[in-house]
Write a protein that binds this DNA or RNA. Sequence first.
DNA 1: ATTATATGTTACAAAATTGTAATATTTAGA
DNA 2: TCTAAATATTACAATTTTGTAACATATAAT
Lengths: 218, 218
Amino acid sequence: MIIEDEKLICNELSKLLENNNYETIILKDFKNALNEIFKVSPDLILLDINIPFINGEALLQNLRKESNIPVIMVTSSNSETDEALSISYGADDYITKPYNPNILLLRIGAVLKRTKTNYNANKLTYKDLKFDITKGIIKKNNIEITLTKNEIIIFAYLLNHQNKIVSRDELITAIWDTADYINDNALTVNINRLRNKLKEIGYENAIDTRKGMGYILL
Amino acid sequence: MIIEDEKLICNELSKLLENNNYETIILKDFKNALNEIFKVSPDLILLDINIPFINGEALLQNLRKESNIPVIMVTSSNSETDEALSISYGADDYITKPYNPNILLLRIGAVLKRTKTNYNANKLTYKDLKFDITKGIIKKNNIEITLTKNEIIIFAYLLNHQNKIVSRDELITAIWDTADYINDNALTVNINRLRNKLKEIGYENAIDTRKGMGYILL
DNA sequence: ATTATATGTTACAAAATTGTAATATTTAGA
DNA sequence: TCTAAATATTACAATTTTGTAACATATAAT
């Protein structure tokens, strides 16, 4: 979605993008921008900072209260203040006019790639295996292993803290929220179960015990 | 982690970052960069494109084969080729020397914010609720609802395709992989269960049926 | 308005997940 | 080397999740 008031630029952008296999839509009604955005639900927004009726940065700020739709800010000024503000308001990237078309395309590609993995939300990697968080499935070559909910939480937590020692308390809180947690052995058992599954795909020593400190995913 | 050969700049950067409550570590052994990175497992890397012994872009490319550690490319040239290449090789951001310290800090903050939500991997939002994919927990104000595995897959899928119609086949494939799928009613039942849970937190009509086409999360 | 088809609902039994307890093993330090 | 504390293992029972079937309702097209 292109949000820009100079028609020439709109058409240029639109042509460039359509030529590169992106579908484009040009926002007409600036006054109603937020509603239009939600109605269309675009994959990415090119947002000119200087559009009539509303303030581009304010629009971005309001958008970010409800949505993570990727936004690339476009501007004619190249003051660093704009850049800084856009980023802190949640823009995914920033480009100044006049822009090099190839750079713009690359930046769009980069932002989409970044946010797409964010959308899928689900894929983490560890060495030569992939972990789909949503499904709780680990894939290595053609072998698949299904984790249960607790195992998913533990493995995701360890993956997100790879090569760092993770205390048992951290894991306990991650699974049970300390409040309703009772038995100290429950974590040990669940770690054990996860280890057994990892062993099936050759990661026998992936989770290392650091006695008195916790566990570490190597 | 700072990967940069000009010691003056290293020290400047280090001071700037430490003053802003970041822990820094300066990479010394460029020849062994990749191993060092894995050993330290930094939260973010500032990578100068022109370092001795190795090529910055090649290092980034190799790093990206195994890790998503956020990388901001730093360079003295401001040729667009560098910028374009860095981005396509998987840099999270790019900054040219001489840089404005405040801009650098903002960009670091922005990248960390972006990648942190990526790390947590787990948080999706929908209107005024938050969904923790890993735990399968929906939070609205102080109410918590726990989803089961199938419900998590459905809700995550719908969230990732908000305002778009999602066919029953897509959902079936998402849950069962078509191969081992048997009963057509199973999806309907699971949708029903998810709807009942959403109803508990006031999202009675969130999942809308589009007869003959599928479902849509409004 | 009627009908065939798509989708919704409910209850139940099979299967998977989980915490527990009892016992075994490992480890750091005396 | 010995011991106490931390961590591992195993089997079992309670709980939760799941698919199924039988029946109910809604919808688009005639």
